[in-house]
């Protein structure tokens, strides 16, 4: 295949303890370390390996997000992607709108494969990949833990509740990646310098002419409840009493 399109979402780094904003309208991102969504990083790693095996000729990384998402795209370029596209949006984009943006890019670029993380660790929606496959009218393989490309088909091992399921799909298709698919490479310093010279196109989301869905509105963000201090009980009877007191049994 010629091209692989990979989605890279800018999210709060997985090591950061997230905090709800004081206005309750989301989480704090000012001065917080931001990174590539880890599942997307796995998607990019897989795309690069497919390309390195000679089964694709170009890897394009795409992000929908604020201007600062260029940082994540540059990291993607430093990992080895050939070029980057930022669809700039100051506001968060819901999964359906994101899928529509990707469809527009699919129509422009005609990739043989779209590789996305199974979900982003910020909102955990796990929807964009499935929605893209549906509106594109192409097959999907989600939660991939192994991908084999043979010409115009892909054999994908999926992590499902009862174990591993292996399916074969026709390309072009959407594949979403799970944690155990691969271990992403480290960015090497010389490649950081090379990435500066690779093309990164920025298009305002409004210029795409894509209809933005507003299927839902965020009503509130609440942090998880603080864990309260435990109590020590003397014996089993004490435990049962304590649970009864709290109305748990």
């Amino acid at each position: 295949m010629e091209k692989i399109l990979v989605g890279l979402k800018r999210v709060v780094d997985y090591n950061v303890r997230v905090r709800v904003r004081s206005d309750g309208n989301g989480i704090e991102t000012d001065g917080v370390k931001m990174s590539i969504n880890p599942f997307d990083e796995i998607a990019l790693e897989e795309a690069l390996r497919i390309k390195e095996r000679g089964e694709a000729s170009e890897v394009i990384v795409v992000s929908i997000g604020p201007s600062e998402a260029q940082q994540q795209l540059r990291t993607g370029l430093a990992m080895g992607a050939d070029r980057a596209i930022l669809i700039e949006s100051a506001e968060p984009v819901d999964p359906l709108s994101g899928a529509r943006v990707f469809l527009e890019l699919v129509n422009r670029e005609q990739p043989g494969l779209v590789l996305l993380g199974k979900q982003a660790i910020d909102n955990d929606n796990n929807q964009a990949g499935q929605m893209l496959a549906a509106i594109w009218g192409c097959p999907q393989a989600t939660f991939a833990s192994k991908i084999d490309i043979q010409g115009s088909t892909a054999t994908v091992t999926r992590e499902v509740d009862i174990g591993l399921e292996t399916i074969e799909i026709e390309l072009p298709a959407v594949i979403t990646t799970d944690l155990r698919l691969n271990e992403p490479r480290y960015v090497k310093l010389p490649d950081i310098m090379k990435a500066k010279k690779k093309p990164l196109d920025i298009t305002p989301i409004a210029d795409l002419g894509v209809e933005m869905a507003s299927a839902y509105t965020n009503v509130a963000f609440d942090p998880p409840e603080q864990r309260t201090k435990g109590v020590m009980v003397q014996d089993v009877a004490g435990l049962v009493d304590a649970l009864k007191d709290k109305g748990l049994i």
Binding site: R74, Y186, L189
Partner: peptide, 13 residues
């Protein structure tokens, strides 16, 4: 951005 990338990759290593 380059400097941050360097820090991140070495930190992860």
């Amino acid at each position: 951005d380059e400097e941050r990338m360097v820090q991140d990759t070495v930190a992860r290593f």
